[in-house]
Design a binder for these strands. Structure first.
Length: 156
DNA sequence: GCCAACGTTGGC
DNA sequence: GCCAACGTTGGC
């Protein structure tokens, strides 16, 4: 099993929004970056665990855990002209963008803030804190997965 | 709102 | 295939 981190702006879609969805599951649409898409397509497996990260907000932080709940399938928002994620180069015949389903697992009582992550020596090589790392989906090392659970006071 | 660091686009 | 211009991300 692999571990991942997925970013979301809480003003757009927070971990509580995920928990409130039917089956606590949401199609993770809107990914428009090839590297992130390829992770979903090639490496993410049903059952993989995911850190849910709140970005572009007052206190950026890992706020909980979700899991991969489906394989990839076409992201239909790409061919919806009304959608913020519309991409004229994608079509039902030749889908350029993909999504998969993410299911809520738990919300941390104590989120692990970006500040805390940056100040912990054991997390210095985490992708999230590498300079210029803007990937909205990124792999997480086992060691970092465990350490962040410890910092959150959560069991694995 | 600023801006550094990227990714994408398109002319050549 | 190069690279300048442009758009986006995301912390601060």
């Amino acid at each position: 099993m692999n571990y991942w981190l997925m970013k979301s702006e809480p003003d757009e879609f927070s971990i509580r929004d995920l928990a409130a969805r039917p089956q606590q599951t949401e199609g993770w649409h809107g990914i428009r970056n090839y590297q992130a898409r390829n992770f979903m397509r090639d490496e993410m497996k049903v059952g993989d665990r995911v850190f849910f990260y709140h970005s572009s907000c007052k206190v950026p932080a890992i706020v909980g855990v979700a899991e991969v709940a489906s394989h990839v399938y076409p992201d239909s928002s790409a061919w919806d002209p009304e959608s913020d994620y519309f991409d004229p180069k994608s079509s039902p015949d030749a889908p350029r963008w993909l999504q998969l389903d993410i299911r809520f697992v738990k919300e941390f009582a104590k989120p692990v803030t970006l500040t805390a992550i940056k100040s912990h020596p054991g997390l210095a090589d985490m992708l999230l804190v590498q300079k210029g790392s803007r990937l909205s989906i990124q792999p997480v090392d086992d060691i970092h997965w465990k350490l962040i659970h410890q910092m959150a006071g959560e069991s694995l």
